[in-house]
């Protein structure tokens, strides 16, 4: 039997010293060793050991949080690939964006994947927020995680806004001009914040470079930390909010 041969081979592999040194355990022969394989896995460690059956149904979440996370991961991967061809300098940025569309192999596909995913992630994050709100997910013991979620919503919007300048076309330029003028309408602090954000008085090379660093390094790092806390707290707060009548 082919399957039992493969099974036996994989069990022999799991018994080897190299396998044990990497995965810290031998063959998964009993329920105990099988569950230890799950509990001791870095990539599963955010998952709870047990969940309510109701929270696994599609209607409980519509997987909106997962969709937002996978879009974030997709945006990180496509964004890093786009960085290989993009120079954050005027006017080179615009030319690089055009090259990505018309010269680089599959560049238009990657750029649009990044662009469309960025649009969808805003929709997904808002939808996620409304869904959690209408299920009462802001109530104890989830208040803190609700606040973390609001911070993540703001980070998503700020990532979206900083990315908007990077094509360095007319749309980008005027959107950032208008947006930063809205910031400067804030009393007292408005003008200094606009100056620091743009690195000058108008949307120029400094602004492009600052938005690039914010978009590619600072904001994704902060978002990754908050996403980690967000996931951890879902588990520590005892899973999803289950409505009273369905418990």
């Amino acid at each position: 039997m082919a399957t039992s041969t493969i099974y036996a081979a994989s069990e022999r592999l799991r018994a080897t010293r190299v396998w044990k040194s990497i995965f810290r355990r031998g063959p998964a022969l009993t329920n105990r060793t099988r569950s230890i394989a799950i509990f001791g896995n870095l990539f599963y460690h955010l998952m709870p050991a047990k969940v309510r059956e109701q929270s696994l149904s599609v209607r409980a979440t519509y997987y909106l949080g997962s969709i937002s996370f996978y879009l974030f991961a997709l945006l990180a991967v496509t964004g890093i690939l786009l960085m290989l061809y993009y120079h954050p300098a005027a006017p080179q940025a615009y030319l690089d964006m055009k090259d990505l569309r018309f010269v680089v192999s599959n560049g238009v596909f990657l750029r649009n994947l990044h662009r469309v995913a960025a649009h969808i992630v805003v929709v997904a994050v808002f939808w996620h927020m409304f869904h959690v709100f209408y299920r009462g997910g802001y109530r104890p013991p989830h208040e803190f995680n609700w606040v973390v979620g609001v911070v993540l919503l703001l980070l998503t919007l700020f990532l979206s806004y900083t990315g908007y300048l990077l094509p360095w076309d007319q749309l980008a330029f005027w959107a950032i001009t208008v947006g930063t003028n809205i910031i400067s309408a804030m009393p007292v602090l408005g003008q200094p914040i606009r100056f620091l954000l743009l690195g000058g008085n108008l949307v120029g090379e400094n602004a492009l470079l600052r938005f690039y660093v914010l978009h590619c390094v600072i904001l994704p790092l902060i978002a990754a930390i908050f996403i980690g806390v967000h996931f951890w707290r879902i588990r520590k707060d005892g899973g999803l909010t289950i409505p009273e009548n369905r418990r």
């Binding site: 100056f195 620091l196 690195g199 000058g200 008085n201 108008l202 120029g204 090379e205 400094n206």
Partner: peptide
């Protein structure tokens, strides 16, 4: 440091 001293405007 974040506030530039020389501007090319």
């Amino acid at each position: 440091y974040l506030s530039p001293n020389a501007l090319f405007e």
